[in-house]
Nucleic acid binder design. Structure first.
Lengths: 335, 335
DNA sequence: TATAATCATGAAAAGCTTTTCATGACCTTG
DNA sequence: CAAGGTCATGAAAAGCTTTTCATGATTATA
């Protein structure tokens, strides 16, 4: 590995001049510049990022904490982030939170300690106060997948209320009157927003909101399964369920199958997220799609702006994303 | 951020002594040590990883190049890697190859240039020579998901031949005689090994290998769809298909559905990988499971050994993993 | 008791850049 | 032509550790 000193010797200039040529930080005589560039090429010189980081206090790394590396949700986000950050010359340092407050905090500390220039955080367990505390305010940070009022302009998230509204509205349009909802954990803002959207659609259709039709789940498959069983045990008139996410819907499918209820003939199902499995379940699930990749890209763009790498104003980046209704075959038209 | 100098002043020692206490590189008088530790605590001192990396030539980062960040396959691997490397104090720098030779090379160069201590590479497009060339031999590297003879002791992979053998054998045991195979791209060693396993099972059952029953796909869903259509057009007697991976099997399901052939009554299907969707397709797919997380862990352990962080001998890490047959409902018993 | 060996510590160098400050050459302007 | 300004460049410092080498003190050995 050649150093800047060797280059400077070969080009018969000082290291400072080489630095100036490479970074364009000061004007350099055209001939000198050429000599330098020639030497750089001949020695295949590449600046040592560590030494550079030490002096500029910019490591070129962005820390990303996702909830679960292996989930399709996080994969989509990561992909989006990478596609923006890498061309900008920055690298991703990833870590995961595994839905545990402690892990999440540890992951954030870990990355902060590694001198990341910025942080992108998509976690579920920490509440708002914990999150704000652990982030601190000495590192530019973007929150993904939830809205935190204190840092509204650095949150990239889906309009969950609207997605739930769209889902419920669709069920109503298809002629359903008795619509249940299995929510996610209500400690999460997302889940609460989805519940709100469900309520708003009912209200708009002049249908009463009945708490007996709502159960709280955990976003996991087993919870979809057990919640639906509990719901059925209540023996309420029922024609459709709005499931808080796809994974729970897959569990629901199983529960309904065991009760010899077919989807959508006996019960209609609509869910949320549009993971791959939603397309291949039987029947394929109608669901609400989140533009994960686009959201990841936006988060990365916000980061670039915060780091002043781009001239665009921060406001111009889209931060609230629109959910999209994906119609497949799990909802029956009763009209 | 406190520096080592401030700590040394507070503890009335030289920076060298602080370093010695913190790294245990030389004996330090017990009392001095206590003074130093006290100062470290009071100032909440944390060594600057960049400065440290500059002198030790160890950044503490491991570069990971996966084929596709958003795929469930890579997610599982990443999870495994993270679970070993993070406790060892190392961080992950990720990048993806997107099945393109150029991207893969760029990603590896990108990470090497960032002064990673080591590399874990799971890519598909580069052939062996390209891969060896781009890796070079100045950075410890582990290859995942394929076997490269030149660096046999640094490859962590599945016994693909055996998995394919298990799948095909299972079909035969269930009484199938006309078994087709839609392979992955035969440029990939994995695909060739799976084809070999298929052949071996046939041979062992004294069934003839007929090339008309084998089509080459791309591992993508659409390719499963089109390959099956082409296969059906050949009008061969057929009772089962061994699909090269789950994604192609999902495409196959669609093609068969369009031909009004039901699975498994008319055609049986078995696949490879066991992604989440395999469990929820209709019917749920029998498939071959890869222990992704365990493989990721192993890869990370090999890295740690290569970096001499652990005393275990390199040989003791498991590097060839056993596939597991997962029986669901896509295969009919004809016996 | 004198000499050798061991131990604890500090000063300074090394690692590689970027950046500040200074300098000398050249040009412009009064 | 002298004074002031601009331009291109170099020397040296700064950024924060780790590590080498040297030193003085203490202990063991002959």
């Amino acid at each position: 590995m050649a150093t800047i000193k060797e280059v400077s010797q070969q080009a018969k200039v000082s290291p400072a001049t080489v630095s100036r040529v490479l970074n364009g930080t000061a004007p350099v005589n055209a001939l000198t510049r050429q000599r330098v560039l020639k030497a750089v090429k001949e020695l295949a010189y590449q600046p040592n990022p560590l030494a550079r980081a030490l002096v500029t206090k910019r490591s070129g790394g962005v820390g990303v904490v996702v909830n679960e590396l292996s989930s399709p949700f996080c994969g989509g986000i990561l992909w989006g982030i990478e596609s923006v950050l890498e061309p900008a010359g920055m690298h991703l340092m990833v870590s995961s939170g595994h839905s545990s407050t402690q892990n999440e905090k540890a992951a954030i500390h870990f990355l902060k300690n590694r001198h990341c220039d910025a942080l992108i955080v998509q976690i579920e367990a920490c509440n708002e106060d914990e999150l704000l505390a652990v982030i601190g305010n000495n590192i530019p940070t973007v929150i993904m997948g939830r809205h935190i009022p204190e840092m509204s302009d650095r949150c990239v998230y889906l309009d969950n209320e609207k997605g739930a509204y769209l889902a419920t509205q669709f069920l109503i349009q298809q002629g359903h009157h008795h619509i249940a909802h299995i929510s996610g954990p209500l400690a999460l803002q997302d889940s609460r927003n989805r519940l709100d959207g469900y309520k708003r659609a009912l209200q708009e259709a002049k249908m009463d909101y009945n708490p007996h039709y709502v159960l709280e789940g955990t976003f996991q498959e087993v919870s979809g399964y057990s919640s639906v069983k509990r719901l059925l045990a209540r023996q309420l008139p029922l024609s459709a369920i709005f499931m808080g996410n796809d994974q729970m819907a897959l569990g629901a499918l199983k529960a309904l199958y065991e009760h010899k209820l077919s989807v959508p003939q006996d019960i209609s199902l609509i869910a949320y997220d549009d993971i791959l499995a939603a397309r291949y379940s039987y029947p394929p699930l109608s669901t609400i799609r989140q533009p994960l990749e686009a959201m990841g890209k936006s988060a990365a763009e916000v980061i670039l702006h915060l780091l002043d790498k781009e001239s665009l104003a921060l406001k111009e980046v889209q931060k609230v994303f629109e959910p999209e209704l994906v119609i497949r075959e799990s909802v029956m038209n009763l009209c």
